[in-house]
Amino acid sequence: MKLAKIGKNIGMTLVLPAAVYLFFLLLCNATGHTGFGVGNDLITIIYNAVYAGLVAQAMAINVTTGRFDYAIGAELVLATILGGNLANTLGWGPIGLLLCVVLIAAAIGAISGLVYTALKLPPMVVSVGLAMIYEAVAFMYNKAKGVCLIGNPMLVFAKTGMSLILTVVVLAVLVVIYDYTKIGYNRRALQGGQKIAVDVGINEKRNAVYCYVIAGVMMGLAGCMYLSKNGVVAPETGLGSASYFMSAFLPMFIGGIFAKYSSYPVAIFMGAVVQAIITSGLQKLGVSNSLQTVLNGMIVCAFLIYSSNSYKLVEAQLFREKLAKAKAARQAAL
């Protein structure tokens, strides 16, 4: 019985990515577009999935408890510029790059969390202000040149093997944090109802700071991947850093729907895989950028509509069961 449930959960977790992959594979083959989902295309799907997955994890940990963090893009830019230049100057290699960027991103995340909890202003307002500050710091540092490490051997994090190792480690750590630690329990309690959670003794502020730090770490990892892929990260101004987290929404919504079959971080990552497959599939089919944007928006809307109304399906199911029971009882009484 337990094995069957595990099997069902694994199946439900994998069904959407597998179905989408199969759909595009068949469509591409039917229309004569070869090369979908293999070779370089597969490598890009993995990169896009891991990068978007990390950003979505950073976004989701705060959004689900009512805190939209607009500053995560700026955190990525600032941490990558500071950490990348520091690691390069010190000549610390790939591990040094990872440590420098992630630690700085965690520190920036902690600052965001502390400022939010101290000011008690709406998180959107605080995070927009902080995003402007982080962008300005990144702009002023290094004569606005950002970080440029093109050709540097420390840029290994966009390679497929490294991406997969990173994914496994990150998911393992996040699943433990979400499902087996006090931070995760408290976060879920706060997600369910902040007042009740605070009334029963949960320290909301401390939990918020932890969440911001975790989000910072995720953005630091995403920054390492982005830098490894492109070799450069330029500063942004005028809230331009928001472009770094635009790929987070679809994975987050898919994650919300499929979380019940595994764990929220795993479901988010599966959402990121789905998004990456859709992007590559549309690209292979030669769909124009404008149409891709429209289709992506429609898919996000579809998931939003479903996730906002899924309770109605459950209600309808319960109603049908109740009706069937009532009918059966009346039949028996007759």
Binding site: G35, G39, N40, D41, I43, T44, I45, Y47, N48, A52, K229, N230, S243, M246, S247, Q275, A276, T279, S280, L282, Q283, K284, G286, S288, N289, Q292
Partner: peptide
């Protein structure tokens, strides 16, 4: 008709870049 890569660096751009290198 087939040798144009649209847009600026994002997920779709990287996917097109992958096709370029293949």
């Amino acid at each position: 008709a087939v040798d144009v890569i649209e847009g600026f660096p994002d997920e779709a751009y990287f996917a097109a870049q992958a096709a370029f290198f293949s």
